[in-house]
Write a protein that binds this DNA or RNA. Structure first.
Lengths: 409, 409
DNA sequence: TTATATAGTTCAAGCGATAAACTAACTCGC
DNA sequence: GCGAGTTAGTTTATCGCTTGAACTATATAA
């Protein structure tokens, strides 16, 4: 088929290319090369030149820009027993960081990660956001980030920008949450500028499942760059990663796995549809089917696990049902998008061992040979997945366009 | 969400950018601008400069390259009653063409289109390819294309390259048909070089549904650049167009709409799965349910139309059933990929008026507000859709990389 | 005929990548 | 301990490409 990856330097938009684009592109190439080798693998200019194909002269010049921008720093020489002059090592500047943030149904959270993605500071605050408008929630989050930012700066760490993950459809350009049924939000405009005032890269808005998918990408072995991440929260979401890039569809919010129809004669869904996966595999649906009602979310999940461990039949049935229909949805998705790898997150990861038998059987029936048991894995990122992914995305965007920082200062 | 469209000039591959890339990129930009205004809208260098943002000097230089390559030509001055010196019009060179080719179950076909996509010559040859290996079929097609190419050259038209559409999964790099169940092909390597010996751009292999989707794109109003094309043939295929680009998934063969699970308790499918859309909405399934057996394909379709017109209950039921489940599959797809526009092709277009009531009702039930009746349209491309799309793709790839032709001669 | 407006070309300048020459710093062998 | 060999990184000249301004060309309007 026609190659989707276009030739280097080809603009996919109507803007003319000038030589500055070449520089920006190569700047990103060099930084990307340094990022890949981090942490502390002691990449030298010569190695970067060899890896990228650029000349030593170009790399030197580009590296100078990155040093000026403070994105990377030099570390001591490499006195290994090699012949010839030792190269000067480079690494991501550990004094630069980004803030990952999350707003969810019953908590807000924030964390500071360095540019290599390591979580340095992390704080969660319980808060019932279900009946709260966006304004007060963002204000509460701003207070939390201010604390963390001060703590980071006390250690000499500068926060360059932030990423906020929200369980709903978002429009990152307009800083608007288009729809977040579980928060009760609809077309809420968020004042992202108030979260990290004055940071050079600003704050970007992300869908929670997509952010978690990107976080997962960081934990996968090399080459595992194509997968569907399934986010099991109150709703069921999905994040589609193709060639290490998030696929977000025409308007930027593809991946609503929860509303794939798995039971044409099934129950009505909150979205207005019928027989959606969410009606059988969402947290509320599983808890209800298992006879668990009226507890908190985390509490219900713990009780469900206990019931499963105790051999409770209703609990086992509820989970098996969810697994079966998850398999139907995944089979359709695998065929439609040619996905051959799935990562289960949220409650699907928590219930992994109990849900897998039914899921495996279902996949064998609906997508034989396409999604085998070994193609399904459980999420490696924990609680802070969405937050880490949002922060990581900000770093990725910086790596893609390092000149943004150079221009700012 | 993280922007998927990268900055102009940013290579998504690890190759370093040099200034030649800028030129190539701008060459494509200029040609793209000329293509958009064709045919015979009299685009001048000055208009191209204004539209692209490039300077007049750059456009002049780039246009010279395109003229040298023979991709465009100048047409007379524009003596309109405007003030100032009239510009020199430019258009795609009508003496350059590409060959579109198609191998299907019971015929082979080829056609010559000019660079603006107009079909100049077209010839179809009936041939039962179901029990034939790839070699003889390609040889028969090569004979057909040789005839057409000679006819084109007799008119002074040079064929630059070709595109071949096949009803199956393809690997265009390896020139291999990975799987074409309806042809009985499995990992057949095609000798594409024999089809159009000596042409500068060679021959590229395409999936039929994807090619037809791209052909459809040419017929859609401006702005309608995101849609799912549904190909209704023996199998049910799909072509996903996003931002005027084909989305082909991780390995290049996404879009298998026919194997979305719409009936978890349904019939076994030839793919090994259960309840796939193809088992209720493929041509064979509809014909069987309508009580039509043992006729040729085109004949069966005509008989089915006659039965529907006559008010035959079994025929109406079969088509309604197909429409209902097509709606289920489209609802899932719309949610998963955030598609808001669907184009029906093949037998779904032929049966349009009879299938739409059930489809509309189904969509209202499974994807309320997401896919409304006005979001569903019937294909505007006819029989030659796949062929036209394959040819158009070759032109698109030439427009994306015009330097390929410049380098050749 | 003159003024004005638009199209397209020419030319000097600037920027960025490249290749080759050059300097710097280390290891090895004697 | 010292020169030869080896590798890292910088300097310098050159080339390619876009740009902006000046310039030429060709139309309409008064």
């Amino acid at each position: 088929m026609a190659n989707s990856t276009m030739a280097a330097g080809a603009p996919d938009t109507g803007t003319p290319g000038n030589m500055g684009d070449v520089r920006r592109s190569n700047l990103s190439l060099v930084l990307g090369c340094i990022v890949q080798s981090s942490p502390s693998t002691h990449v030298t200019r010569a190695q970067v030149a060899a890896a990228t194909g650029l000349t030593k002269a170009s790399v030197s010049s580009l590296v100078l820009d990155l040093l000026d921008a403070g994105i990377i720093r030099e570390i001591g020489l490499n006195p290994q027993g090699e012949r010839g002059r030792p190269g000067v090592g480079m690494e991501l500047n550990p004094a630069r960081a980004v803030m990952g943030m999350e707003i969810n149904v019953d908590y807000i959270a924030a964390g500071v990660t360095d540019l290599s993605g390591t979580l340095l500071l992390h704080r969660t605050r319980e808060r019932d956001n279900r009946n709260s408008a966006a304004g007060p929630v963002v204000a509460a989050l701003a207070a939390l980030t201010a604390e963390l930012r001060a703590a980071a700066e006390a250690q000499g760490i500068q926060v360059l920008g932030g990423g906020l993950a929200v369980p709903g459809l978002v429009d990152d350009k307009a800083e608007t949450v288009i729809m977040a049924p579980n928060l009760g939000w609809n077309l809420e405009v968020l004042d992202l500028g108030s979260l990290l005032p004055g940071v050079p890269l600003g704050t970007t808005l992300f869908n929670e499942a997509n952010a978690a998918a990107l976080a997962e990408l960081g934990y996968r072995p090399a080459g595992g760059a194509d997968f569907l991440f399934v986010s099991g929260e109150v709703g069921v979401g999905g994040g589609l990663v193709i060639s290490s890039e998030l696929f977000t569809g025409p308007d930027g919010h593809a991946g609503e796995l929860g509303h794939v129809v798995v039971q044409p004669e099934g129950a009505a869904c909150s979205c207005g549809g019928t027989g959606c996966l969410e009606t059988v595999a969402g947290q509320d649906a599983i808890f209800f089917a298992a006879g668990l009602v009226g507890h908190g979310r985390a509490d219900s999940l713990a009780r469900l696990q206990a019931a499963l461990a105790a051999g409770d039949a209703a609990a086992a049935d509820a989970v098996a049902r969810a697994g079966h229909y998850l398999g139907v949805a995944l089979a359709s998705t695998a065929r439609l998008l040619n996905i051959s790898s799935v990562v289960l997150g949220g409650h699907f990861a928590t219930l992994g061992e109990w849900i897998q038998p039914a899921l495996t059987e279902s996949l064998a029936r609906y997508a034989p040979g396409k999604l085998r048991p070994e193609d399904i894995s459980l999420s490696a990122v924990g609680e802070a997945g969405a937050l880490l992914g949002a922060a990581g995305s900000v770093v990725r965007s910086l790596v893609d366009a390092p000149y943004r920082l150079r221009a700012q200062q």
